[in-house]
Design a protein around this nucleic acid. Structure first.
Lengths: 167, 167
DNA sequence: CCGTTGCGCTTGAGTGTTCAACCATAAAGA
DNA sequence: TCTTTATGGTTGAACACTCAAGCGCAACGG
């Protein structure tokens, strides 16, 4: 346990700069959407993914995957979106456990109202700050990370750590 | 309003990969800390910044800045950390509005218990996934973003957008 | 000296997320 | 068929964060 692979100074700086950039960026993205469109970014993503689906309809589980939500989070979110009249849920006929989520016309309208401001924010805060080379590099890094984080087991160290209820 | 600078396909992909990588990464970082050290990452950062300060002590406002917290968030967090016995608050004698936050011995111990697992997680999930060139590129991008997001006014478009209470 | 303005920090309500437990249905095994 | 196990999805409690409002003190202005 004492052979921890600590971060060297460069790695420390990189990690902290990464953290800082992330917080600053997403804080502002979140605030812009909240102020101008009255929705958190997670909801925007849900609406966006639904809008791209055939018939603006997706199974809940699939929607959870594509919108980067946990199941529970999606359930709560869609409940809210349904109250707002932006999404409708119907049970699936062929598998009666399942549920379809459909983006309503009002939901699409809300998304289309929100989109310009959101996109402008992302562009001005992220893309305008970077050279084309940096954007390309960021894309590669992100791809590498997604790859790395998608394949492995849920937990890097199942055997000798992480026993939540033991202590 | 119809002259939105939309994202082209490449930019879309980059943005979504970036989002995905971020969620996957921070979800796991958060879960690891929660499971093994019983604290969210934000609390870890607070303890870490305090541990690096002279006398393990900082003014609340300064701690908020260095730990990337809003004032309110820090107040709530330190209240919790104080309950846990990891941080102590004392009022500042020279400016009786102010408050000092000090990392206790128990807090330092908790941090030192949490650190190896956390660092190993960051290394294995982030640095191990990237080549040295990619790490360098990530660092540059992060620096550029921090720079970009730190200097400007709080709101990129005061004049023609962002009227929260108008609608 | 007293009022105003500004700063440092806290508070409470509201909200989104997580976790664990749960329900209902489907699929697999005896 | 009857039981078991797995899957799709929901629920409620716990908790962290945000926002707006507020409190106490400091600094400035008359």
């Amino acid at each position: 346990m004492d052979h921890t692979r600590w971060l060297d100074d460069d790695e420390q700086r990189t990690w902290r700069a990464f953290l800082t950039a992330n917080r600053l960026l997403f804080e502002r993205v979140e605030r812009q959407l909240q102020n101008e469109a009255r929705m958190p970014h997670a909801y925007y993503e849900i609406l966006a993914r639904l809008s791209e689906a055939p018939d603006r309809t997706l199974r809940m589980s699939r929607l959870a995957d594509t919108s980067l939500s946990s199941r529970s989070r999606l359930s709560h979110a869609v409940a809210r979106l349904e109250e707002a009249g932006w999404v409708e849920r119907t049970t699936c006929e062929t598998d009666r456990r399942g549920a379809w989520a459909r983006l309503t016309d009002a939901g699409l309208a809300a998304l289309e109202r929100a989109a310009p401001g959101h996109v402008e924010t992302v562009r001005s805060l992220l893309f305008d700050a970077l050279t084309p080379q940096q954007v390309a590099a960021l894309g590669e890094v992100a791809d590498a990370l997604v790859d790395h984080l998608t394949d492995r087991p849920v937990w890097p160290a199942e055997s000798d750590a992480g026993c939540p209820e033991a202590g």
